[in-house]
Amino acid sequence: MTQAVEAVSAVRVVLPGPLRQLARVTGELVVDAAPGEGGRITQRTLLDAVEARYPMLRGTMRDQDTKKRRAYVRFYACQEDLSMQGPDTPVPNEVADGREPFLVVGALAGG
């Protein structure tokens, strides 16, 4: 059972190499994500927080207007593929409370 997260929370995010290069970071990011309309941190609010802290990442993970996930980008956490969940789906509690990172992954393509 999931729990409501009502406050801004420090979440951990792991970017793929090309985006770490672009954002000029090494290792995990920690960003303060705000809860969405349902009072929970969602993919949308988590990525909003990432893009607010690292504006050079806008457009690289999702469309800047529609916020639709780019086709070759996947989102994983807690050994689950969250890519097909809607952007307003709450992230797992373990991500929301910082125990587990949210993984942004470049899909395996190209042989």
Partner: peptide, 8 residues
């Protein structure tokens, strides 16, 4: 650019 992360 690249196919994964689009245009910069």
């Amino acid at each position: 650019s690249n196919s994964w992360f689009g245009q910069l």
